[in-house]
């Protein structure tokens, strides 16, 4: 479904994505994993063909640079947060995209129904809750029933309830045979949705692995967030990685995935290095649902 070869994208001197290659077969689901600035969003934009890049990317065999319009017709894209004209009403926005994607009004209504937004057509986009916005984005992405859905941190601005709704919808889509590519900061989502994880760091693909390898699941995994002084975050991340933990910087604290019964381990490891931990938050349990394969 996706074939990316040597994709490189520079912003000035910095290579945001550097010579990255991967393939994704139809029906597969892959998560992009990496800290902020690792190049996940840039890679997604390259794959959508909305920014120029070197290397080749094709979707369903269609080159995204030469036939961007046709390639994008195969993709439903869900951004981090739906950015659409705030003044327009939900129904009108839906109709606009329905026309762009050349599907019928009937289909648009169906699509809204599928994400449970029927009855909200008169609401203005600005008045929608975060979860509703993301559901609207999903509805738009699903309008033309595309085989591939690309999502850029679709849940990062949502609360637990909203996240649950989105993840549930995506799991249904997987079950229906859609191909998924998504960026995420949350191990629970990755575990729930992906069968492959591409770990990125500074624009490079450093590991092509599976959630099970990344987070050993013989014991249920839990994610704790450590709040440190800003200066010590990088040092702390290194220390924890040395100690064998899966760590990522999330802009706001340090997220560490730990087995359920060894939650104090990272703190101890940091204490050994004399890095002070201001606060600890245990994120909600990762529920590992059964994934139909």
């Amino acid at each position: 479904m996706i074939r990316a070869t040597e994709i490189t994208r520079r912003f000035g001197r910095v290579e945001a994505v550097s010579a990255l290659s991967f393939e994704l077969e139809a029906g597969g689901s892959v998560a992009l994993w990496g800290s902020n600035g690792a190049g996940k969003t840039t890679l997604i934009r390259c794959l959508l063909g909305v920014i120029r890049h070197r290397g080749q990317a094709s979707i369903g065999g269609v080159d995204v640079r030469r036939h961007g319009r046709q390639a994008r017709a195969l993709v439903g894209y869900v951004p981090q947060e739906l950015a659409f004209h705030d003044d327009s009403r939900l129904g009108n926005a839906m109709m606009f995209f329905a026309r762009l994607r050349r599907v019928s009004r009937h289909r648009a209504a169906e699509s809204l129904d599928a994400v449970g937004l029927t009855g909200h057509e008169r609401k203005r986009v600005r008045d929608l809750s975060g979860g509703m916005k993301q559901r609207l984005a999903l509805a738009v992405a699903l309008l033309s029933n595309p085989p591939l859905i690309i999502l850029d941190e679709p849940t990062s601005n949502l609360d637990a309830g909203g996240r649950g709704e989105v993840v549930a919808t995506l799991r249904r889509l997987r079950a229906d045979g859609k191909t998924l590519l998504f960026a995420s900061h949350r191990p629970d989502e990755v575990i729930a949705l992906a069968d492959r994880v591409l770990v990125m760091e500074q624009g490079r693909l450093i590991r092509d692995t599976t959630p099970a390898e990344l987070w050993p699941t013989e014991k249920p995994v839990q994610v704790i967030r450590l709040y440190l002084t800003l200066a010590s975050e990088a040092e702390a991340a290194d220390a924890l990685r040395e100690a064998g933990h899966a760590v990522h910087l999330n802009g706001d604290g340090l997220c560490v995935a730990v087995p359920r019964d060894r939650k104090a381990e990272p703190i101890t490891a940091l204490a050994r290095r004399q890095i002070e931990v201001r606060d600890v938050e245990v994120l909600e349990d990762v529920q590992i649902p059964e994934v139909k394969q």
Binding site: R105, H106, T118, R122
Partner: peptide, 12 residues
């Protein structure tokens, strides 16, 4: 002018 989604659904 554009036919709203609402109208269509009711029509359906």
């Amino acid at each position: 002018t554009q036919p709203g989604l609402r109208a269509v659904r009711e029509g359906d």
